[in-house]
């Protein structure tokens, strides 16, 4: 599969479909890091493991590159979905982007509890079946119990937060300037942990219609907070209520932004368990 990716990357460069290919490079002494390949010869050093999300990097590269610079990106399913969302939100010009889609392995899908471990435009590898996150024991346990029980469980987990902002920084579609999490009205500065309601839930809600379930936030968390369980149930709610999956259809806009009049009955739009993380005096 790797050889096929390289072949495509060389063709993309040789035929000038793009000026550079963003992927991973295995350099001297086997060091692997992101790299922009600009000549077909260089592509020999391209690798596709480990999973290393490149969507946000692609966005910043395109922002600072010269006008008309076209970038190809080696993408997994989640990376492709993230790029689609970034295009939809006018962060990337579609014309300047080419993707080389690769499928994830079954092991990777398992590790990411990913229900769609392949891109829509699959160029290399065979798509493997996804994993239903809600069938995973650890996820079920995190979402189980009544309101107060969940509240206690999650408060205990989230009080580990060291406020590194890694979940936000690594998120491929967290691009707002200014960021709500930097607003002192919501998030008190200078103390840890970050507040459950005003940091973690603002983040979760803010991403409810853009989260592409890539898992970058959880992977970047130094204190192992299972952020995906929080995010996936937000995502699931949009899927159930609107049949909407962020990152899949480039033409369909977020139902939260565009389908307000079709909003379902009150209470349904928010996952019940998220609702339960409110403070007692608000219930």
């Amino acid at each position: 599969m790797l050889e096929k990716v390289k072949e495509i990357a060389r063709t993309v460069l040789a035929e000038k479909q793009a000026d550079g290919v963003l992927g991973l490079m295995k350099g001297q002494w086997d060091i692997i890091q992101p790299h922009i390949f600009e000549s077909p010869v260089e592509v020999d050093a391209l690798v596709i493991e480990p999973k290393w999300l490149l969507a946000k990097m692609a966005m910043t590269v395109l922002r600072s590159s010269r006008e008309g610079y076209r970038l190809a990106v080696v993408v997994r399913g989640c990376d492709e979905r993230a790029l689609t969302e970034l295009v939809k939100r006018n962060q990337i010009e579609k014309e300047r982007l080419v993707t080389i889609g690769i499928a994830c392995t079954a092991e990777q899908a398992q590790a990411c509890i990913c229900d769609r471990p392949y891109p829509q435009k699959l160029d290399c590898g065979d798509a493997v079946a996804g994993v239903d996150p809600f069938s995973i024991e650890s996820v079920k346990e995190l979402l189980a119990g009544d309101g107060p029980a969940r509240m206690e469980k999650w408060a205990n987990i989230l009080k580990r937060c060291i406020k590194c902002y890694g979940c936000r920084n690594s998120c491929p579609i967290c691009v707002c300037v200014p960021c709500k999490l930097e607003d002192q009205v919501w998030v008190e500065t200078g103390v840890i942990p970050a507040e459950v309601l005003s940091y973690h839930l603002i983040r979760a809600f803010h991403l409810s219609d853009t989260c592409v379930a890539c898992g970058a936030c959880q992977e970047a968390c130094p204190v192992n907070i299972p952020l995906m369980a929080l995010q996936l149930s937000m995502r699931e709610m949009l899927r159930e209520t609107y049949g909407y999956d962020a990152g899949l259809d480039p033409e369909r806009n977020s139902p939260i932004l565009y389908d307000l009049c079709k909003e379902p009955a009150a209470g349904q739009a928010l996952p019940d368990w998220v609702n339960s993380l409110r403070k007692d005096d608000e219930s």
């Binding site: 060291i162 406020k163 590194c164 902002y165 890694g166 690594s170 968390c221």
Partner: peptide, 20 residues
């Protein structure tokens, strides 16, 4: 910019606020 190194034997793709 600073990104975490996914392959680092200690930090394995994570950083604190100072590292970022």
């Amino acid at each position: 910019g600073t990104y975490p190194d996914k392959e680092h034997p200690v930090s394995r793709g994570t950083l604190c606020i100072k590292g970022w």
